[in-house]
Deep mutational scan, measured.
Amino acid sequence: TRVETATETAWISLVTALHLVLGLSAVLGLL
């Protein structure tokens, strides 16, 4: 259904953003 697709997209966006933040923090930590 469309609701499931929207929820899945939201989760993917959330996980991606989380990985970006963690990756950025790791890079800044190494610097």
Rank of each mutant, 00 (worst) to 15 (best):
S25V: 04
S13A: 15
V3L: 10
T5P: 02
E8P: 05
A10T: 08
A17S: 05
L31K: 04
T1D: 10
V21I: 09
V15H: 04
A10K: 07
R2K: 06
T16N: 10
T5W: 03
A17I: 07
L30V: 10
W11G: 11
L20F: 01
W11P: 13
E4Y: 10
S25W: 14
L22D: 01
R2C: 11
A6I: 04
L24A: 05
A26D: 01
T7Y: 13
T16K: 02
L18Q: 01
V27K: 08
V27G: 08
R2I: 09
E8D: 11
L20A: 14
G23Y: 14
L31D: 01
L28H: 06
V15E: 06
L14F: 10
V15I: 13
A6D: 05
E4P: 11
L31A: 11
L22C: 15
V15W: 01
T16D: 01
S13Y: 03
G23W: 05
T7E: 14
T5N: 03
V27Q: 00
A17K: 03
I12W: 14
T5V: 06
A10E: 14
V27H: 10
L22Q: 06
L24E: 00
L22Y: 07
A26S: 04
A10H: 00
L18F: 13
L28V: 07
L24P: 06
I12D: 05
V3S: 07
V3Q: 11
H19I: 04
L14K: 08
A10Q: 00
G23K: 12
V15G: 11
W11F: 09
G29M: 06
L22W: 14
V3D: 11
G23P: 02
V21M: 05
E8H: 00
H19N: 07
T7I: 01
L30W: 00
T9F: 13
T16V: 14
T16F: 13
E4N: 12
T1Q: 13
V27D: 02
L28R: 11
H19L: 13
H19S: 14
L24D: 06
R2M: 14
S25E: 00
A17E: 12
V3H: 06
V15C: 04
A26Q: 00
R2P: 07
L24K: 15
L31V: 08
E8G: 09
A10M: 00
E8S: 03
T7D: 11
L20W: 12
L28N: 03
T9R: 12
S13P: 12
L18T: 10
V27M: 00
L31F: 05
T7K: 02
L14P: 08
T9L: 11
V27L: 13
L22H: 00
